[in-house]
Simulated scan of single mutants.
Amino acid sequence: MSSPCDPQHAPAGDVGAALMVIDSRLKAIYDGRTETDPEQRQLIDQFTASLGPREARDLLDGACTLIFMFMKWLRMACEDHDKDVIEYVVPSFVATMRMMPKSVPPEAIPTMAGLLVAAGTGLSPSLWRRQYGDWTREEMNPLEATAFLLAEHINRITDDRDFATRLITEALSRADQD
């Protein structure tokens, strides 16, 4: 029986734009910048201000697609080592998010953990979230932080700072060829 949260029913969204945001954050951190470059921040602010409601929804769905794809890769990697992705990933992410109160307020942590569990069990994070209503403004930074933390976690375990970005770009290239 198919779930209403099955990824086949989910919009992919603007994965490219979501990946661009996450990749720019990764590069900033890897370059030793803890604060976003003012010029980069201005470009991101201009980009997000230019989004209409449809484009904003596409960006949110793209971020959820990134979370799904990252968790799928982590699930396969965990299974190769007889580990459970939920047990291996979620507790450390919750602990990390708790250390980020400016970006992830405590009340957003259960939702972000739920997104990880949904994706880790093969469900669409965006469809899972839609069951509970529209996204709130307060969930935007936590959503970005969740995708960022997953990408950084993948990069760290592969010892390759570009692995997560390459994982997605290669998947998008394969999808374009099909």
Rank of each mutant, 00 (worst) to 15 (best):
M1R: 08
S2W: 00
S2V: 07
S2T: 12
S3Y: 13
D6R: 03
Q8C: 07
A10N: 00
V15R: 12
A17T: 09
A18D: 10
L19N: 12
M20T: 08
M20L: 06
V21D: 06
V21Q: 06
D23Y: 13
S24C: 12
K27R: 14
A28V: 00
A28P: 06
I29E: 13
Y30N: 12
D31Y: 03
D31K: 06
D31W: 04
G32V: 06
G32T: 06
T34F: 12
T34C: 02
E35N: 09
E35M: 12
T36N: 09
D37V: 01
P38D: 13
E39C: 08
Q40D: 14
Q40F: 14
Q40N: 08
R41D: 13
R41Q: 12
F47P: 00
F47I: 02
F47D: 04
A49F: 01
S50A: 14
S50I: 00
L51E: 03
L51S: 02
L51A: 03
G52E: 02
G52R: 03
A56H: 09
R57Q: 15
L59Q: 04
L59A: 10
L60V: 07
L60E: 07
G62E: 05
A63D: 05
C64H: 13
C64I: 00
T65R: 11
F68H: 11
F68M: 11
F68S: 08
F70T: 02
K72I: 01
R75Y: 06
R75N: 05
M76Y: 04
M76N: 07
E79S: 10
E79T: 00
H81S: 10
H81Y: 10
D84C: 15
V85M: 09
I86K: 01
I86E: 03
I86C: 04
V90Y: 12
V90W: 08
P91T: 08
S92W: 09
S92K: 12
S92D: 15
S92A: 14
S92M: 11
F93W: 00
F93E: 11
V94E: 15
A95Q: 13
T96L: 13
T96A: 14
M97K: 01
M97V: 04
R98K: 09
R98Y: 07
R98L: 10
M99G: 13
M100L: 15
K102L: 11
E107I: 00
E107G: 05
A108S: 14
M112S: 02
A113M: 03
A119P: 08
A119S: 15
S124D: 05
P125A: 11
L127K: 08
W128P: 09
R129D: 01
R129K: 15
R129M: 09
G133R: 05
G133P: 04
W135H: 02
W135R: 01
E138A: 13
E138L: 02
E138W: 00
E139T: 01
M140T: 10
N141P: 01
E144D: 12
T146I: 04
T146H: 00
A147E: 05
A147L: 00
F148A: 02
L149E: 10
L150T: 02
A151F: 14
E152Y: 13
H153N: 07
H153T: 09
N155M: 06
I157D: 09
T158I: 10
T158L: 11
D159M: 02
D160T: 07
R161W: 06
A164M: 03
A164N: 05
A171H: 07
L172K: 02
L172P: 05
D176W: 04
D176M: 07
Q177L: 14
Q177C: 12
